[in-house]
Design a protein around this nucleic acid. Sequence first.
DNA 1: TCCCGATGTTTACGTCGTAAAGACAGGAAG
DNA 2: CTTCCTGTCTTTACGACGTAAACATCGGGA
Lengths: 206, 206
Amino acid sequence: MTGDTTHPPRTTYHHGDLRRALLVAAEAELIERGIEGFTLRGVARRAGVSHAAPAHHFKDTAAMLTALAATAAQRLKAAMSRRREAAPDDPRSRFVASGTGYIDFALENPALFTLLFGSGRPDSDDPDLVRHAGAAFADLVEAIAAISGKDPLADAEGRLDVAAAWSLVHGAASLLVAGRMKPLRPAADADREAWLQRLVGRIVPG
Amino acid sequence: MTGDTTHPPRTTYHHGDLRRALLVAAEAELIERGIEGFTLRGVARRAGVSHAAPAHHFKDTAAMLTALAATAAQRLKAAMSRRREAAPDDPRSRFVASGTGYIDFALENPALFTLLFGSGRPDSDDPDLVRHAGAAFADLVEAIAAISGKDPLADAEGRLDVAAAWSLVHGAASLLVAGRMKPLRPAADADREAWLQRLVGRIVPG
DNA sequence: TCCCGATGTTTACGTCGTAAAGACAGGAAG
DNA sequence: CTTCCTGTCTTTACGACGTAAACATCGGGA
C-alpha cells in the first residue's frame, strides 16, 4: 500500500530514515517467512543496506522484534476500538465488539499476532510493549466493567469474568490463526461474522 | 527422574537405542533452552553422539520435533483421561475434567505444549501427530456429546459448542503458560484448583 | 575550518543445519 | 570360517546466520 521505502539502491551514503524502513521491512519479512524463518540479514537485504546496519538502530534481533511487537499491540487495540465504535451502544454489544475486534486483528495479521503472543522472542518487559498491550487489556476490562457496573479487577469473581473472556477470545484467535478451527467454522464467508459474534457471545459475564 | 540414557561416554561404537535416546535428549533440550534455543547439535551433544548422527533417525530438525510433538499429543490426551477417570460420574463434571486435564498438561509441560500449539515447527500433517492430536480432540467432543445427548459435530449449534469449549480451554492454557494470567489468578496454590474448575465451568454447553 | 559523533560498510569469528564420504560392526550368504 | 553388505556413527565441508570490531562517510556545531 504505502511502505515503499525500499528497493531503488539509494544514491546517498546515509539512508535518512533507516529505523522506520527496517520496521517496514521486518514486517514484510515476518509475513513472508514466518517467525521461524525470520532473519536479521534478510531484513537488511530487503531494506537495501548491509547486514550490520541494523545494529545502529536495534541492539539485536530480539530488540527489533520487540519494537515490531509494540506496534502490533498498538494495532490490536486499534482493531478493538474500531469494532467498539461501530457497535450498538449497549454494554453487551460493546463487549462482543471488543472480543471480535481482538479476533479481527489476529485474522488480518496472523504473523504479527503470532509474534505478539505465540513466540517468546520479543522482550515482554519492554516498556513500550507493556504499555500498548496493557491498553488493549484495559479495553477488555472496561467492556466488562460496563456490564457489571463495577471494577472487575477488584474482586475474585470479577477477575474470573476477565480471565474467562480473555481466554475464550484469545483461544479462538489462536486456533483460528493456526488453522485448527477449520472443521468447526462455517464454510461460507457470509456466515462467519454471525458465527464469530455468537462465539464471543457465549462468554458474556453475568 | 528416569531417562538417564546419556552421559557415560559409551564404549561401543554403535549406540543401540539412539532414536529413543535422542527423543529423551530433545525433550530435555526443549525444556532447558526453549523452542527458540532448540538445536539439533545440542541434542546430539546431550546424547553423546556426533552432530550428524541424528540424521540416520530423523530426516531433519523438523522431523525430530514432529516426533516429539506426537508424544506430546499422546500425553495431552492421557492427562485429560486421568482427570476424567477421577471425576464424579455426571456429564458436566466429566466435561470440566477434560478441560482441566488439558490445562494440567499445559502447566506441567509448558515446553511441550508450546511445541505442540505455539510453534509452526512440527509438521502438522504428520500421520502420528494427526492421530494423537485427533484422539485428544475426540475426547473433548465426546464429553460434550455426553451432555447434549447428540453428536456435536452434526449441526452448526453443536460445532459452536465445541469451538467455544476448545477456545476457552486452549486460551486459558496458552495465557497461563505464557505467564500472562498472573494478575487474574489466585495467589495461593490452594485456591487454584477450584479457580480452574470454575473457569472451565463457565463454558459448559447448554 | 575542523573535527566529532552518528550512521553505514567490511571483515571476522563461532554456531547452526545439512550433505557427502569415510570408519565400524554384526549378520547373511557362501 | 570367511566375505561381504547394510545400517549406524564420525569426519569433513559448505553456506547462512548473529554479533562484534575496525573502517568509511557524512553533516552539524565548536
